[in-house]
């Protein structure tokens, strides 16, 4: 009993500075942002005495704004299609590399490398070396075979979204592969040995053993992916350059940035509307988090 009390005191002492720090530098801006979203505020640092209360108007205006709806559509497409592509490839690599493949560490490092390269650099590489319609790899490849595809403009119109998605997924695979690999490596080898003795094929082992035992890891991956996609910004900006944003690649955070700070052609700012976008995006992440926890149940197994 006495020991429990001492532990609680110890926890209290160690947590207090961190909690105070958290309240000061994190909770205050969060609360301010949420409050701001119900007012009209021009600049992010405008004094609260100048805020004009407008209730839910920022939210209703956002819902009626066509470009914001487009940005949401783009975000959902990135989440769904990008998520499927990234998770599938990551899972494939994770399974291959944990099944006794040679040079595992080498391949692991190679696949992870895009994660340590700056997004600006890797975007530039894709845009100039791969997708450039005059000098890019795809142009040269199709031109070599005399295909009409050599004239395709990969950086324009609706196809621009898909080139962006491919490049983004390329940069994301390594990260999720590592998470999934650590999950797979946690599963005891004797389970697979027993399954092999019982005559289970590799695909059956993956379906019946690996996937169920990876449920909690997959849930985490979905939440991480959602957080990453909601905060999608740099890639979109790179794909829109030299413009601040484009119809096919704009995301909510880019729109938020445009209306909070203005753009080259439009100096109008509305920090409160930007705050409302931020609040909506935070709600989106929370919704996905709870939905994932509710819909995907952890298998009740111990190993």
């Amino acid at each position: 009993m006495k020991q429990n009390k001492q532990i609680k005191q110890m926890i209290f002492c160690f947590l207090t500075p961190a909690v105070l720090f958290f309240l000061l530098v994190f909770l205050y801006p969060v609360v301010r942002t949420i409050a701001m979203s119900f007012f009209y505020v021009e600049g992010v640092s405008d004094a609260t005495s100048t805020w004009q209360f407008i209730g839910l108007e920022n939210y209703t205006t956002l819902m009626k704004t066509a470009i914001f709806r487009e940005s949401i559509k783009n975000m959902l497409k990135i989440w769904l299609w990008g998520g499927l592509i990234t998770m599938s490839i990551s899972m494939l690599f994770a399974v291959i590399l944990t099944s006794g493949a040679k040079f595992k560490e080498f391949y692991k490092a190679v696949i992870y490398i895009p994660n340590i390269i700056n997004a600006v650099a890797i975007s530039t590489m894709w845009m100039t070396a791969i997708f450039n319609k005059r000098f890019g790899f795809l142009h040269n490849f199709f031109a070599f075979f005399g295909s009409n595809l050599a004239t395709t403009d990969y950086m324009s119109g609706s196809i621009k979204f898909w080139t962006l998605l491919v490049a983004f997924c390329f940069g994301s695979v390594g990260y999720y592969m590592l998470i999934l690999m650590s999950g797979i490596e946690r599963i005891p080898a004797d389970i697979y040995e027993a399954a092999t003795i019982d005559g289970a094929s590799k695909p059956a082992q993956f379906r019946r053993i690996t996937l169920p035992l990876l449920t909690s890891v997959i849930k985490n991956c979905i939440v991480f992916w959602t957080v990453g996609v909601v905060g999608f910004f740099v890639w979109s900006q790179m794909w829109s350059a030299p413009l601040s944003s484009e119809l096919t690649t704009i995301t909510p955070f880019v729109y938020m940035y445009n209306i909070t700070f203005g753009t080259t052609g439009n100096a109008d700012r509305n920090a409160a509307m930007g705050a409302a976008v931020g609040v909506l995006m935070a709600i989106t992440v929370l919704f996905v988090f709870f939905a994932v926890n509710r819909l995907i149940k952890d298998e009740d197994v111990e190993f």
Partner: peptide
């Protein structure tokens, strides 16, 4: 004249205008 002669003046639909101009220039 303003920047881009005002075509980027409206934050709510400048991207739609730009996309339409690009499509026109590509003769799509």
């Amino acid at each position: 004249y303003a920047w881009a002669v005002g075509l980027q003046n409206n934050a709510d639909y400048m991207e739609f205008i730009q996309e339409a101009i690009n499509q026109l220039c590509k003769m799509e």
